[in-house]
Amino acid sequence: MGGRDLIDELYDASYGRLVVQMLALCGNQADAEDAVQEAFVRALLHRERLAHADRPEAWLRTVALNQLRNHWRHTKVARRLLVQVPGPRAGLDLGPDHVALVAALQQLDATSREVVVLHHLAGLSVSEVGHQLGMPEGTVKSRLSRSRARLAGLLDDQHDDREVEPRA
């Protein structure tokens, strides 16, 4: 398999999940959708690569992640190659806590953010995250631990701010 059947299945099953993962990474739904759509366009362009991938969704995620990681859309050449899917985008109706969570994630350093997203949202094990990011498992664990603590602190601060705000 490697044609539309595989991609159809992946598209139905993975698109939304990947967008949410990329949203957590970049904090911007439009950029997240662009990155995921770019991944699927590449999949359509290179069906044989996807067909030979052990884990097609991981392949797509890596492509999408690389788009965000490299800030590729800022290059002159790449701008001409942007995915152009017409029509308005529907914004996700994130609750206030989750808006705060996405905002807090953006305050982590990029590596920690990737560790958190790959582990918690993509469901990769610690060793898989380590393999993908090229870091020892111990480092992944410490990054996760520190990131959780940092997120908790950031969200607590925001919670406190919201409570203080009415009095200001």
Binding site: G16, V19, V20, A90, L92, D93, L94, H98, L101, L121
Partner: peptide
């Protein structure tokens, strides 16, 4: 919990 929004995409 962010995965709960998957269906909204």
């Amino acid at each position: 919990e962010l995965l709960d929004y998957t269906a909204q995409v």
